[in-house]
Design a protein around this nucleic acid. Sequence first.
DNA 1: AGAGTCTCCGGGAGCGCTCCCGGTCGGCCG
DNA 2: CGGCCGACCGGGAGCGCTCCCGGAGACTCT
Lengths: 342, 342
Amino acid sequence: MAPRSEDERPTLEDVAAFAGVSRSTASRALNDDAYVSARSREKVLAAARDLGYSPNQAARSLVTRRTGAIAVVLSEPEARLLDDPYRTAVMRAGYRELADVGCQMVLLFSDTREDLGRTVRFLEGGHVDGVLVFAPHRADPLPRALRLLKLPTVFGGQAADLRRGVHLVDFDNEGGARQAVTHLVESGRRRIATIAGPQDQGAPIDRLAGWRKTLVDAGIDPAGLSEEADFTLAGGAKAMAALLERVPDLDAVFVGSDMMAVGALRTLSDAGRDVPGDVAVVSFDDNAALAPAMTPPLTSVHQDPREQVHAMVSTLMRLLDGEDVAPGAQILPVSLVVRESS
Amino acid sequence: MAPRSEDERPTLEDVAAFAGVSRSTASRALNDDAYVSARSREKVLAAARDLGYSPNQAARSLVTRRTGAIAVVLSEPEARLLDDPYRTAVMRAGYRELADVGCQMVLLFSDTREDLGRTVRFLEGGHVDGVLVFAPHRADPLPRALRLLKLPTVFGGQAADLRRGVHLVDFDNEGGARQAVTHLVESGRRRIATIAGPQDQGAPIDRLAGWRKTLVDAGIDPAGLSEEADFTLAGGAKAMAALLERVPDLDAVFVGSDMMAVGALRTLSDAGRDVPGDVAVVSFDDNAALAPAMTPPLTSVHQDPREQVHAMVSTLMRLLDGEDVAPGAQILPVSLVVRESS
DNA sequence: AGAGTCTCCGGGAGCGCTCCCGGTCGGCCG
DNA sequence: CGGCCGACCGGGAGCGCTCCCGGAGACTCT
């Protein structure tokens, strides 16, 4: 064997030669298999350290058919991602949870049409062992495209319009809305409006439904009491203004996200309405940086992205281990955190 | 050759057999090399399409020694990342710019001590061809650790305390601060305070220096006119309050970031100071979602993350092509965008 | 017509690793 | 003491790809 030049990366063969054992033994020692003598193991480990060896992942995954990497796909228009604190939290949680199980996160953004092709091509290229997907929009073509790939996949939140045969982890959006609105009803509010998120997404649809059903159950007519907004602060502010105009005597509002609630609070304050004196406000998300920091602190439906991602990762790991996990939705409970705004 | 079962992924060999050519020819056709007849090329392409072939990246990169993936490392405490709009913009820009040159972004977060080891291990594992690093903190050990790896690396902003021998793309922080403060001086302000970012980072240090020097050049004593904050909204608000207390007659403030400026505006408004009537406010970043959206809209030093990342990517690509790029800092110009707050 | 050139193609080697298989050596049992 | 079993190790095959090399035709030029 030609003497390897200094700047070439050492291979397993080099380590083995240096340690005076065979390539097989070196491999066994490094992957701590059984049937390696303590003496050999130590020599190999020392050799690896001395040579600064690190295994070539391409070669390894060529034979093991495992890459140790998991893709996290965020399918959402650019603007949304930038200021949606929930998405940021998801990225972070994904990184952490995957690191905990020894996997590397590969983040993919997919919002334009051309992204879809690139995303699919990347995923089928064998770069990753599995996928975690967040594709909240009903009309998103990505989830269907992913079904054709036979990559283990777990969805976070609703998978576009797919219902059966997929693994997904979602929060109890409708139940959360019910809790929120029930709380308002029980504290004596009667004119309970809502600012709903975009109705092209599953979660906001369910939250709106929860609001509506709870009102009906309480004998209140929901007609004219709802306004749709786009999950942004400005959108929330505008929707609140529209509601105040249409329903001047409203005494409570259930807002579909913290960010929109911040906007609603601003509008209410500008309009001289006291919260919670004149109008009670309850929102959804309970984002740690937003809900408790407002004036007044927001009552909000708590959902923890970390918990969601944790459940997704553990399902994915079971899938990767070849377990025959029954597909279906795993619904995580949410709980109302009552603060001063209601 | 045993008949390949349906759910196995087809290999290049399968495609070749299906097309009735050799593996070599199939490879040539797929990678559109020269010296393939149009006829063969077409047959191979059709076969690949019919079989749903996509090349095994592990095998490919084993021989080409290229992975087509670039790591983007964000070395920053968790809390900072969540609400720093600049970082979010950087991730996004990284994804886009890398996609444009046909590379996949692999995001790495690295904030705790144990992350450092994992990050380094991942990078030396040969998963990626190069690295883009954002490690603003002076004491960050990551940049030094990366020097030992012989991976092409480009830094975004200052690389901890490394100065020579690294490739980096930064903005003209000091020059930007000078522009901002000069603007204030020229519009007749004399008591010009500053809210500086964390002084364990290079950029805020340079911005503070720019403020100080400009004042001195204008014959103004900067003593007692500066306050340090942590780049957050709350931090900016608190620092503004401290300044108002200590320097009640201040008539302008240069804030080290948009986010802190939002906090400062809130404090000023609570204190009944009119902006820009009583106090002019100028900030840094010119974040599209923040600066123009405030009341009043903020005058801010404009820096475009996309531009920075673009420069980083192009330097990295040259490095990857084996070009002998001279190391050093590439300083991007910034410009003051004047709005109503000053 | 023979030499040279250019286009196209197939065979084979080899990237660095894992894993299977078979061999050796020592200890222990009947 | 022969046989067996378990611990340990080395050789070899092969993962799916790229790339080098040499060969087969077709064509041109002297």
